[in-house]
Computed example of a mutant assay.
Amino acid sequence: MKPIIHLSTISDLYRLFGLGPNHHPLVAVLDFSKVSEHVEKHTRISTDFYSIMFKNYCKNTIKYGRKNIDFHDGSLICIAPNQMIEMDDEVESTENMMGWGLFFHPDLIRATSLNEKMKDYSFFTYEISESLHLSDKEKNILYECVQQIRTELQENIDVHSQNIIVSTIELLLNFCSRFYGRQMITRSNTNKTIVSQVEGILHQHFTSNEISEKGFPTVKYLAEKVNLSASYLSDLLKKETGKNAQEHIHYFLIEAAKNILINSDKTVNEIAYNLGFEYPQYFNKLFKQKTGQTPLEFRNLS
């Protein structure tokens, strides 16, 4: 297995691709049609910066996690710092090689409002199979943002440079959020199937012995069951039902708790343990938060 190449700085990225000095130490825009991709097969790469890449063709197939990235359809991928990608099998043809990459270090945005907003851009933690497939219009919109950043980087740095660059990055990310929303709408039939699968899994979990055997279900557990990343599943459920993955888990848990409270003589503590809670007070707190009543108040009123 080849060693991991870790890129700590934007300068490291330029050196990896044999490029000249970078215009800015914390942000770069690369035109992939002008980059000679000579990274060896099976090379694993991690970075300390954010990567947003759009390509129609890649000399190397890129593997992220355990899945290959298919750039041939013109998809966009967003990778957070410290994630691992692997350059996999080479493709012989170099025809129609094109695309761009925007790379920026967290230090660029650390003192800005965008730093706090980054956690809202959940697509940075999506699996590659959940990449964003862009229409021609969407490609042009994102490309205009990238061109604006490129132009700004080629100007002399002044007191306005960082604000302009950061605000344009934020604009691009907001468009990505919009386009992901569009993609989820256009895949609504598939999404509804996933919603049904999730609800079936939760129903089975809370109405069988699985809860006592496997414990409280997590968002990660649900995501693995339907072969999605936790972030993508949560966003999909929110788009389709108005409730994210954690809220779905809580809904089925509370419904199961209500049934047990009404149809059994078990104590609240016993019910809490049976539903996978290590501490009954957490069950009491969640039940009241979701229903406005304590478990005992619900039982007595019912």
Rank of each mutant, 00 (worst) to 15 (best):
residue 123 F to T: 02
residue 123 F to L: 01
residue 124 F to R: 05
residue 129 S to I: 11
residue 129 S to H: 12
residue 130 E to C: 04
residue 131 S to H: 02
residue 131 S to L: 00
residue 133 H to M: 08
residue 134 L to A: 11
residue 134 L to G: 07
residue 137 K to D: 12
residue 138 E to H: 11
residue 139 K to Y: 13
residue 140 N to G: 08
residue 143 Y to F: 14
residue 143 Y to E: 13
residue 144 E to K: 14
residue 144 E to M: 12
residue 146 V to P: 04
residue 146 V to C: 03
residue 147 Q to R: 08
residue 149 I to Q: 02
residue 150 R to N: 12
residue 150 R to Q: 13
residue 151 T to W: 03
residue 154 Q to L: 15
residue 154 Q to H: 13
residue 155 E to M: 14
residue 156 N to D: 09
residue 156 N to V: 15
residue 158 D to I: 00
residue 158 D to N: 12
residue 159 V to I: 15
residue 160 H to W: 14
residue 161 S to H: 04
residue 162 Q to V: 10
residue 163 N to C: 12
residue 163 N to H: 15
residue 164 I to S: 08
residue 165 I to N: 10
residue 165 I to H: 11
residue 167 S to H: 09
residue 167 S to G: 03
residue 167 S to R: 07
residue 168 T to P: 07
residue 168 T to L: 10
residue 168 T to M: 12
residue 169 I to D: 13
residue 169 I to Y: 14
residue 169 I to M: 11
residue 172 L to E: 11
residue 172 L to V: 10
residue 173 L to D: 01
residue 175 F to D: 03
residue 177 S to H: 08
residue 178 R to A: 08
residue 179 F to H: 05
residue 179 F to A: 00
residue 179 F to E: 01
residue 180 Y to Q: 01
residue 180 Y to N: 00
residue 180 Y to I: 05
residue 181 G to Q: 07
residue 181 G to P: 00
residue 181 G to C: 07
residue 182 R to W: 10
residue 184 M to Q: 08
residue 186 T to F: 12
residue 186 T to H: 13
residue 186 T to K: 14
residue 187 R to H: 07
residue 188 S to I: 15
residue 189 N to Q: 14
residue 190 T to D: 10
residue 191 N to T: 06
residue 191 N to W: 01
residue 192 K to A: 11
residue 192 K to N: 04
residue 192 K to M: 15
residue 193 T to L: 14
residue 194 I to T: 09
residue 195 V to D: 00
residue 195 V to I: 07
residue 196 S to R: 15
residue 197 Q to I: 06
residue 198 V to A: 02
residue 199 E to F: 09
residue 200 G to I: 01
residue 200 G to M: 02
residue 201 I to F: 07
residue 201 I to V: 11
residue 201 I to E: 06
residue 201 I to Y: 08
residue 201 I to Q: 05
residue 202 L to P: 04
residue 203 H to M: 04
residue 203 H to C: 01
residue 203 H to Y: 07
residue 204 Q to W: 03
residue 206 F to L: 09
residue 206 F to M: 09
residue 209 N to C: 03
residue 210 E to C: 13
residue 212 S to I: 09
residue 213 E to M: 04
residue 213 E to C: 02
residue 214 K to T: 08
residue 215 G to R: 06
residue 215 G to Y: 02
residue 215 G to D: 00
residue 216 F to G: 04
residue 217 P to E: 10
residue 217 P to N: 11
residue 218 T to W: 07
residue 218 T to S: 15
residue 219 V to L: 10
residue 220 K to Q: 12
residue 220 K to M: 09
residue 221 Y to D: 12
residue 222 L to N: 04
residue 224 E to Q: 15
residue 225 K to N: 13
residue 225 K to T: 06
residue 225 K to D: 05
residue 225 K to L: 13
residue 226 V to D: 09
residue 226 V to S: 09
residue 226 V to G: 10
residue 227 N to C: 09
residue 227 N to Q: 13
residue 227 N to A: 15
residue 230 A to Y: 05
residue 231 S to T: 07
residue 231 S to Q: 14
residue 232 Y to I: 03
residue 233 L to S: 03
residue 234 S to M: 01
residue 236 L to S: 01
residue 236 L to C: 00
